[in-house]
């Protein structure tokens, strides 16, 4: 990737305080010093286990949450302290598509009313022009204008996701954050929505941060993929490198646990033992250490528990955060060989 980045995230940190009252509440570090860039027209995939901080990063970028520390820049401009008009301009540049398609719409407003929002808020159109632009928008995402007077709950999951896309595209943003936009959809519907994304991106030159735990969807759509583990970015790189030659042990395990679809091949997935919640991460060291196969193979070196691994360039053009990235043998046949674990 070369050239100016559209979105630049540097040292992003987000702490959430546990629910409840009193000083005894501990803070959860949902996002822990994350940095990455998204270039114009590029789709970056963000993958990772549940609770790894994907949604939080998305919400920070669209400014639904305030970062605890770190910088988010859009075209070089710091997003902190944007106010008034500048803030409204930012809203036209960056949009979000939400995960839960059922709740992402107010059940008491018609599609027409919901899709008028962006035009009214930004004073882009009114009257007959508004009507025309909403119609155009709807057709663009594969729906028809008679649907304008229906309520969101009268649509199927796939149609509702198209509405979500339409709402986000109305202001012609440069960057769209899509949080799990295809999970919960049938394979065939999912394919339709993914195709729509691909088309829109080609035609509109849209940049996207595509959050998903479905690696097949991510691989189809995203030129680059970033892998999160417990709030930290552990690897980022071009999709083929990441899939065929992953460097970080967690990425390997993750790739290995995707069903390979080799009928007759049997169950060949990597099974990482233990779960995120079991491993109380050592703040100072590598979060993945307690479940890491490489760490055990290397005789549990102290470095992994004491020093935080930083993102460093890895073979294949990506970056990985592992102290022992170089000492890893190339996985055979693109399938990780890891197994075992704690527990």
């Amino acid at each position: 990737m070369s050239g100016e980045s559209l979105l630049s995230v540097r040292g992003l940190v987000k702490d959430f305080r546990e629910r409840g009252f009193g000083p005894g509440r501990t803070a959860v570090r949902a996002v822990d010093d994350v940095s990455f860039d998204v270039y114009p027209g590029e789709t970056l995939g963000l993958v990772g286990e549940s609770g790894s901080g994907k949604t939080t990063i998305g919400r920070l970028i669209v400014r639904l949450e305030e970062p605890t520390a770190g910088r988010i820049e859009l075209r070089g401009q710091d997003l902190r302290g944007l106010s008034g008009r500048r803030s409204l301009e930012f809203r036209r540049d960056v949009q979000m598509i939400f995960q839960n398609t059922q709740n992402a719409f107010n059940p008491r407003r018609t599609v027409r009313s919901v899709l008028s929002d962006p035009y009214q808020i930004h004073r882009l159109a009114s009257g007959a022009e508004l009507e025309e632009r909403i119609g155009g928008l709807l057709r663009r995402v594969g729906l028809t204008t008679p649907m304008l007077d229906r309520y969101p709950q009268q649509f199927s999951g796939g149609q509702r996701q198209r509405l979500g896309i339409a709402r986000a595209l109305a202001v012609q943003p440069a960057l769209v954050v899509a949080d799990e936009p295809v999970s919960g959809l049938d394979v065939s519907v999912q394919a339709q929505v993914l195709n729509l994304f691909a088309e829109l991106r080609r035609e509109l030159g849209l940049a996207m941060l595509f959050i998903s735990h479905d690696l097949r969807a991510v691989y189809f759509l995203c030129e680059r993929i970033a892998v999160l583990y417990l709030g930290r970015l552990v690897e980022i790189g071009p999709r083929r490198t990441l899939l065929e030659d992953p460097v970080h042990p967690y990425t390997r395990a993750l790739i290995g646990s995707i069903p390979a679809f080799r009928p007759g091949g049997g169950f060949t997935r990597t099974v990482i033992k233990g779960e995120i919640s079991d491993s109380e991460p050592v703040k100072a060291g590598c979060h993945f250490a307690p479940r890491c196969a490489r760490w055990r193979e290397l005789g549990q070196p102290a470095r992994c528990r004491e020093e935080r691994p930083l993102l460093r360039p890895a073979a294949g053009g990506g970056l990985a955060a592992c102290h022992f990235a170089e000492s890893s043998p190339r996985p055979l046949d693109g399938v990780a060989e890891l197994a075992g674990g704690i527990g």
């Binding site: 394979v187 065939s188 999912q190 394919a191 993914l194 690696l215 097949r216 969807a217 691989y219 189809f220 083929r240 899939l243 065929e244 995707i258 390979a260 679809f261 693109g334």
Partner: peptide, 8 residues
């Protein structure tokens, strides 16, 4: 309809 994994 299954998105392929691997290759271009």
């Amino acid at each position: 309809a299954i998105p392929p994994l691997g290759g271009d």
